[in-house]
């Protein structure tokens, strides 16, 4: 029994339990998730219509927001109830995040942006530049992009650099929010193929958020956000 639970914990990347979150200034009833479990190495396509709370859920998983009730465990750690600075550190070490928009610090070079991610984690790599070049090449970016200021490259390129940055510390969990909005269909497909392949190789758990159902084909598992979420009212009834 005991060893059974340990095995489950070891197998689980994300465990959301009875989580309630409501924006302080929000006038809706917030978001409630009774239970959601994601295994390690799983690649999840999370979709739902605009405003359905996808980004909010990613915020919770990244520990940028904390639930008002319930608990989120990440990689077996009671992530959501950790002390704020421990949670920041844990995120730096184990979670890679890619935003919907504005992923890079505009006035820093691409390389500096990637180095910054490593700076805040406890894996102090001494070959950040090599690794970065490697990832950028895999993501079909020209190598000379490394030394350009982040605001001098296109949005599509920025999104791919953001992926490279999220991967630099070899995180166990990668949270990606709509990264393909600026790509054309062909580039999108190439990008998805590469992303899923990189995660496959490294055994990285991937939660990929999009409302673009076309991308669903790249994932073995897809989850509609409304399947997870019930509004607070529903819960109370």
């Amino acid at each position: 029994m005991n060893s059974d639970t340990t095995r489950i914990v070891e197998k689980t990347a994300i465990h959301v339990e009875n989580v309630l979150h409501q924006y302080r200034n929000g006038d809706d009833n917030g978001m409630f998730i009774a239970e959601w479990r994601v295994d390690r190495g799983q690649q999840i396509f999370l979709h739902g219509e605009s405003g359905s709370g996808k980004t909010t859920l990613l915020n919770l998983l990244a520990g940028v927001l904390t639930p008002d009730k319930g608990e989120i465990q990440i990689l077996g750690k009671p992530f959501s109830t950790l002390k704020a600075h421990t949670r920041d550190k844990f995120r730096a070490d184990h979670i890679g995040v890619v935003f919907q928009q504005f992923n890079l610090i505009p006035y820093l070079s691409v390389l500096k942006n990637i180095q910054l991610a490593n700076h805040f984690s406890s894996t102090h790599l001494n070959n950040v530049e090599d690794l970065a070049t490697d990832y950028l090449q895999k993501l079909n970016l020209p190598p000379n992009i490394l030394f350009q200021p982040a605001n001098a490259i296109s949005i599509g390129q920025q999104q791919r650099v953001a992926i490279a940055r999220a991967l630099i510390n070899q995180p166990e969990l990668l949270l990606v929010d709509e990264p393909t909005s600026a790509l054309d269909v062909a580039a999108k497909d190439a990008f998805m193929a590469i992303l899923t392949e990189i995660c496959q190789e490294a055994g990285t758990t991937l939660v990929f958020v999009s409302h673009d159902m076309h991308l669903k084909q790249f994932f073995p598992t897809s989850v509609e956000i409304t399947e997870l979420v019930s509004t607070k009212e529903n819960q109370l009834c």
Binding site: D88, K89, V97, Q101, I105, L116, F120
Partner: peptide, 16 residues
């Protein structure tokens, strides 16, 4: 704001 959000998500605490 965005810059701060990026730093935050990279693991920089508010004190940073």
């Amino acid at each position: 704001q965005n810059e701060i959000a990026v730093l935050r998500v990279l693991g920089a605490g508010p004190h940073v």
